[in-house]
């Protein structure tokens, strides 16, 4: 039986595609018009030649990497413990993890500045590293809804209770179980949470700006005010990066244990 062609759904699908791709195409087209009268990648080259761009990008990548590590170390043991021992509390924890979606990040950063300002008991904002720490903590909070969901779904897919008991009967401690059994088995989930965290942190403006960090988000906004073609080029590159991350996420999610995503010829021969 061949599915019948339906006009209604087809129109809706087409409209959705246009809605998404037309502005994207327009931006792409625009980004190529920096040189008058010809299409070129001059805007892209201009972006990369800007030393501020590179510094901002590197800073944001480091900050989001730190946020990913902190976030995973916070969320994985928490989600594990809640699923294993406090299943009744799961809705509560889930609700708390969703709060960053409800409370604007401006509120969060003002709270941070009040709590850890120059006249507080712990004046983190007075030092560079302290402010960076606040930024990373802010990123961890912002990414909590995505990280928690990803990790919690990952745990739903394996029988953590029985695996825990099996490992315990073999003499393993709780910490060992989390790091050698639970973490590796939800790796795909952690990785997808990590990619989501990364894409959020990279574009984040409010916290970075109010903490006066020269991160990528504020840079983009500044660029948007100062220039015409470069922001379009930057937007297209962000899209490309996001899609790449999505593809990697998919690849990690469907990977079987023992498989490598890339065959590293340099890596020493894995144990038989």
């Amino acid at each position: 039986m061949t599915p019948r062609f339906r006009i209604g759904p087809a129109i809706i699908t087409l409209a959705a595609i246009l809605y998404f791709f037309v502005p994207l195409y327009a931006a792409f087209q625009f980004s190529l018009q920096m040189k008058r009268g010809e299409l070129s990648f001059a805007a892209y080259a201009s972006v990369f030649q800007d030393g501020v761009f590179v510094n901002a990008l590197v800073f944001s990548i480091l900050a989001s990497a730190a946020a990913i590590v902190f976030g995973a170390l916070l969320v994985v043991p928490t989600a594990y413990w809640v699923r294993l021992r406090l299943p009744k509390l799961r809705p509560v924890v889930e609700f708390i993890s969703l709060l960053p979606l409800i409370i604007p990040s401006v509120v969060l950063v003002f709270g941070q500045i009040r709590m850890f300002g120059s006249s507080s008991f712990l004046p983190l904002t007075t030092s560079d590293w302290g402010t960076n720490l606040l930024l990373v903590i802010g990123y961890v909070v912002l990414s909590l809804p995505y990280m928690f969901r990803a990790v919690d779904n990952g745990m739903a897919a394996i029988d953590i209770a029985t695996l825990t008991e099996a490992a315990e009967s073999l003499g393993a401690s709780r910490a060992r179980i989390v790091f050698t059994i639970i973490f590796p088995n939800i790796r795909a989930a952690v990785v997808s949470g990590a990619f989501l965290t990364f894409s959020i942190c990279l574009g984040e403006f409010a916290i970075a700006s109010l903490l006066n960090r020269s991160a990528f988000g504020p840079y983009m906004v500044q660029l948007g005010q100062d220039r015409a073609y470069e922001p379009a080029a930057l937007a297209i590159m962000s899209f490309a990066l996001t899609w790449l991350l999505m593809a990697l996420m998919q690849a990690f999610a469907t990977m079987k244990p023992g498989q490598r995503l890339f065959r590293l010829t340099l890596s020493k021969k894995s144990q038989a």
């Binding site: 029985t162 695996l163 008991e165 099996a166 315990e168 009967s169 059994i181 088995n185 244990p257």
Partner: peptide, 20 residues
């Protein structure tokens, strides 16, 4: 449990999927 030196087998096998 991890101090008792027991061995256990489960109906669901409970092998660690990440280990060979």
């Amino acid at each position: 449990p991890n101090q008792r030196k027991i061995g256990m087998m489960f109906q669901s096998y409970a092998l660690f999927p990440n280990l060979n």
